[in-house]
Structures are given as structure tokens and as C-alpha cells.
Design a protein around this nucleic acid. Structure first.
Lengths: 305, 305
DNA sequence: GTCGACTCGGGTAATTCGGGTC
DNA sequence: AATGTCCGAATTACCCGAGTCG
């Protein structure tokens, strides 16, 4: 997928004339780079930001290598959840992609899409499977499709700035459900973090090593399956004791029952991705304010994060 | 880090054509040195100065931190395997992506990239882990990165034609290693199949249901971990008996020992993705010839696949 | 010295520039 | 005030045989 677009491509995608695009660039309405010869180049992510703002309408996304819009009015996230649930069951990957991208282009926050559309639909499929109305392979295929879409969304988020705070996360040993941690990474990246999901099935010792090496300011754990609760608690506690001061621990996932949470220490428990997003935002605001004060005192423009 | 860059490397990093870079050099927009034979060499520092000026936009900065990238054929793939191994260990996702995409742009077959670069590098990381030279999280993170790259490559393959033959596959119950089946899907799609990976951890009963519903002409099983060999054999045999006539069964993966294979029936055992690719191609050629003969007889241009 | 892959230079087709006008 | 269309000049992308690099 091309990351740099010519005015002509943008014009086709927005269904306007080329001159209009050029004028908008010249007026600063669209961030523009120039080649050495003076030709305009527009970054795809910059364009998508404006589209999501509602400033421009993307009539022909396929001109940019993006999935085509369905054209139908997006009757809200709830209906999208139902429609994508059906599409996932059928394995209609392209239709799923359309639904999600429609929502993204309509400026729905990724966290809300994760919670109210994707998680919702997957949950529904899980229920059907429990009642014998769906095959296991349909559920697995649905997870595959969602994972692919999450990865595609990730490439569409503008790269985090150099000085962005770092975040690290994953799932613990015995937990092989990657969607949660993948969503967390995506949502944090949208919020402007340098977030890295380490993957699934990670023993506490290696998580400690990763924390030691990277020293992130946020650390998330997605818990969808806990085979041995006492072992889990023990591993978690040692992890928290050695690194809980330096990094903000965020935990979430269906496997964290109330009684389990009662025996854990953490900076935040996030039931949903939207909780994670708002927690991350408040954390970042706070650290910005602190580093801002530092700058005021020292008159030093160097950033420290 | 290589200090001198070729026009090709610069072109890829800036996402412009090679001739543009050459013209800019000739016009003095980029300071240029020359080899004795008249080949242009651009100093990394000279380029970075212009990038900071905002005169050029560095779309793919990773390309510059590297020795000459693109496919020096076999030597290229082997070296790429080593280089991507290091990048995977460090978690340098962008660098990994650049290495793989360079190979793709140099027209290396995806199957060869999977076998000789990605699998090679992952294997090496596995060895290091066994010897205590690598952390578990580095290995998991490497798998995550490779999976993302595979998904991105998938979006770059043109959609298969309507009448393409179908293929289905996945991993069996207890096997949670998705890279093998994801690579298989990718390679088959490159070969023009409508290939769908159903995911991992699939009980035989649901695989049977999927085969029953979709009736593919090829069915692959990736086997990287077999917790219970007798259960596996039993499940596989019942699957093969009911659907082995209709679909070509292809099996592969490290977990398939010689003794296990001796007790299995299949159309092909594929040690590597390149085997899978050539098997799929020969299968398709054969079916094309058959349907071609039919057309000769009936003078009917309708395809049947 | 051989060899494959890369680069050179030049030519051509397609695209984009800026400006003027509707 | 904003958009779409037209224009010659300039820029960029693609192509190819000969020469260079490692």
C-alpha cells in the first residue's frame, strides 16, 4: 500500500478535481510534502486523519488501495456489531473489512470499535458455539479475520512521535488468546504511544526481563484464560513488586474475576478498550504537565519522557 | 551502519523513482560522490541533512540503516535471513518489514522468502533460546512481527480470480502455532488459489464440517506440535477416510516425524513452503489440462473448477 | 578472471506544475 | 468565495543496451 499519494490519486479518491486538492494543499488544509522538483506528495495517514475529522469524504477508497465503502448508512455501532457477526460466521472477510473501515472513516474511535463491534460480535459467536449453533472452525476463522483486520488498521495509524511514551504488554503463560493484547496495542498506538505487544504465552520471568530492558511507562496484561490461579497470582505479584513502581500496570480480560482482582495490585483495571484508552490519555496528560513544568523551570527545550 | 548509499536505496527510502534521485544528484540538489567507474554514491549524512530541512520526506527510514538491501539472489536470501534474525531479536519491526519487502520487490517468490528467510531466522532464534542466549519474549515478539508482516504481504497479493480453485487448512487440536498455516495460505494465494486458513487448535470434527461445507480441492494441515500422537493419528485417519478422495491432503510441519508419516495417508508431504507451492502448481496445471480437454471436446468456453 | 546483479545514461510517455479563465 | 477545466513548461516514471560492482 502506497504511503505517499499524488494530488491526482487524492482527487480520484475524494471525487473532486485535481485543482481543488492542489488549492487545499496550498492553503494548508492538507499537510503536504514536496519532491525536489516541486511536486506535491500527501501522506496517506495525513489524509485519513482529515477524512475521519469529517472534513473530506472518501468516496472511492479503493483508489488508495483501501477496501471499498459499503455505501449504506452506518446505522450505529450496535447494528455494525450484528452485521459483522454474521459476516464473521460466514467467513466473508472482505465484508468484515468494509464494515470496520466504514466505522473508522466515520471517525469512530478504535477503542469503541474494538469494544462494541468486534468484541461484541466475537462474544456472540462464542455464545452460538456454546449452544451448538456454530462450528468451532467458524469461531477460529472469525478470530483470524479479526486479527488480520487489526493488523491492517495498525498500518493506517500515523507513526508515533520519537518522544512518545513507551508501553509494553502481552498475555501470561498458558493464555493463548492474542486478540486482547493486539487490540490493546492498537488502541495505545492510536492514543500516541509507542506500544508493543510482545505476544502470548509469556512466562513471568521473561516479562520481567522485557520490563528490565525496555523500562516502559505503561505495562498491560491481557488475561483471557488462567489455567492455574495460584501460580498466576504468584507470578503476577513478583512482577508487580519488582516493576510496579516504575511502570503503570494495567490489567484486563475476562479471566480476571472479582476475587482474583481482590488479590492483585495494579494502576488500573480495564474491562474494555475504551477504559484503557482513557487511562492512557490521562496518564500521558499528567506526564506532559510534569515535563512541561520542568521545562518552564529550566527553560530547557529537551524533552524527557 | 553503511555510510554510502546507492541511488536505488535512496529511491526506496524516499518512495520515488530511481531516475528522480539520479536527476537530483546531477542537478546538485544532493551532494554526490562517484566511484571510479562513475557510479553515484550518496553519503547518509548528506541525505539526512536534507531530510531534516524538510526538503525530502523519509518514508522508509529503515532502509538507510542497512547494508545494500535488495536481492542479491541466493546470497541475498541467506544474508537476509541473518539480518532479519538480528532485527527480529531486537524487535526492530520496521527493519524486518523493509528486508522482506525488498526481497518481494526483487521478485523473490514468497515461498522462498518464507523458507529461507523467515523460517530460517525463527529457527535460529529458537536455537538461541535453547542455549539461553535469547529471552522467551524475544521469540514471541519475533513471531508477532512475522505474523504482522505475513498479513501485510497478504494484502499485497492480487485477489484470486472468481474461478480459482479453493483450498482450506489450519492446525489441529492442541497445536497453537499459527505461522505455518498462515504462510501456507499466503503461498497458495500467491499461486492463484482461493486459500483460507481456518486458524489453529481445530478439532477434527470441525475440520470435517468445514470440508463438508466448502468442498475445497486442496486441504492442508500444519503440524508444529502434537500433544497426543495416537489421538492425532486417529483423528487424522477419520478425516482422510471421509474426505481424502475429494480433496488433496497436504501435510507438513516439524512435528511430523518419519514414523508418524508412515502411519498417515496423504497426497503430499511438504517439508517447506516451496514444496507446497510446486505441488499446488502441478495440481492446478493438471486440472487446467483436464478442463482444457473438456473444452476442446465441447467447444464451450465456460470454465469449471 | 568469471558471473550475476546492479547502475549508467539517454530517450520516451505520462503526470504534475502554476497560472489564467470560466 | 469556491470549484472545474484548459494550457505550455517542467518534472517524474518507465524502459533498455552497455558498462561497473562485489
Amino acid at each position: 500500500m502506497r504511503e505517499q499519494l499524488t494530488p491526482k490519486q487524492v482527487a480520484r479518491a475524494l471525487e473532486v478535481s485535481e485543482s481543488s486538492v492542489k488549492r487545499w494543499c496550498d492553503r494548508g488544509l492538507i499537510p503536504t510534502q514536496y519532491t525536489a522538483g516541486g511536486h506535491r506528495r500527501i501522506a496517506l495517514s495525513d489524509l485519513l486523519v482529515r477524512v475521519r475529522d469529517g472534513r473530506y469524504r472518501l468516496v472511492h477508497p479503493e483508489a488508495l488501495g483501501l477496501p471499498p465503502t459499503s455505501g449504506r448508512s452506518l446505522g450505529g455501532r450496535q447494528r455494525a456489531g450484528q452485521r459483522i457477526g454474521e459476516a464473521l460466521l460466514e467467513g466473508a472477510e472482505q465484508r468484515c473489512r468494509q464494515i470496520v473501515f466504514d466505522l473508522v472513516l466515520a471517525d469512530q474511535p478504535l477503542a469503541a470499535i474494538c469494544d462494541e463491534v468486534l468484541a461484541e460480535a466475537l462474544c456472540e459467536i462464542g455464545h452460538r458455539w456454546e449452544q451448538g449453533e456454530a462450528e468451532v472452525y467458524q469461531e477460529r476463522r472469525a478470530c483470524e479475520i479479526v486479527l488480520r483486520i487489526l493488523h491492517e488498521l495498525r498500518t493506517m495509524i500515523p507513526a508515533p512521535p520519537e518522544d512518545a511514551p513507551e508501553a509494553l504488554g502481552g498475555t501470561m503463560a498458558g493464555d493463548r488468546y492474542v486478540l486482547g493484547t493486539t487490540m490493546a496495542e492498537l488502541v495505545l498506538r492510536e492514543a500516541g504511544w509507542k506500544a508493543i505487544s510482545l505476544g502470548d504465552n509469556l512466562p513471568a520471568s521473561t516479562l520481567a526481563a522485557a520490563l528490565q530492558t525496555h523500562r516502559p511507562s505503561l505495562f498491560w496484561l491481557s488475561c483471557s484464560h488462567i489455567p492455574d490461579e495460584t501460580a498466576f497470582l504468584q507470578a503476577y505479584q513478583s512482577l508487580y513488586q519488582s516493576h510496579g513502581q516504575r511502570a503503570a500496570f494495567v490489567v484486563g480480560g475476562n479471566a480476571l474475576t472479582e476475587s482474583l482482582r481482590g488479590q492483585m495490585q495494579y494502576a488500573s483495571y480495564c474491562d474494555k478498550m475504551q477504559h484503557l484508552a482513557s487511562f492512557a490519555n490521562s496518564l500521558q496528560r499528567m506526564s506532559n504537565r510534569i515535563s512541561g513544568e520542568k521545562h518552564d523551570e529550566s527553560q530547557n527545550p529537551t524533552l524527557e519522557n
